[in-house]
Amino acid sequence: MLCLEKIEKTENILNIEEKIISIIQENLEEKHPVTLESDLRNDLTIDSFGTIMILNSLEDEFGITIDEHDFKDIVKVNDVINHIKSKINESQ
């Protein structure tokens, strides 16, 4: 039973990662490959209003509220994923 829960949790984490990457891709003006290590500003050319676009989509997708100011120190896609995961955990 515990083992099953662990597998489900791992699958959820992977799904969240895939979903976040897909949301970032959908909100880019130009197509760029998005990886966990992609730098939002320099690699994906996301500006402040581009960030708001992504935040809105993340809020809609995960049913959470994200403060724009919390995103100021976020540099890479992986940082976004970690931030959203902690937000989801907080809300549960």
Binding site: E29, R41, N42, T45, I46, D47, S48, G50
Partner: peptide
């Protein structure tokens, strides 16, 4: 140039 436009554009 940035911040008027995104980086490298």
């Amino acid at each position: 140039i940035p911040p008027s436009i995104p980086q490298n554009q």
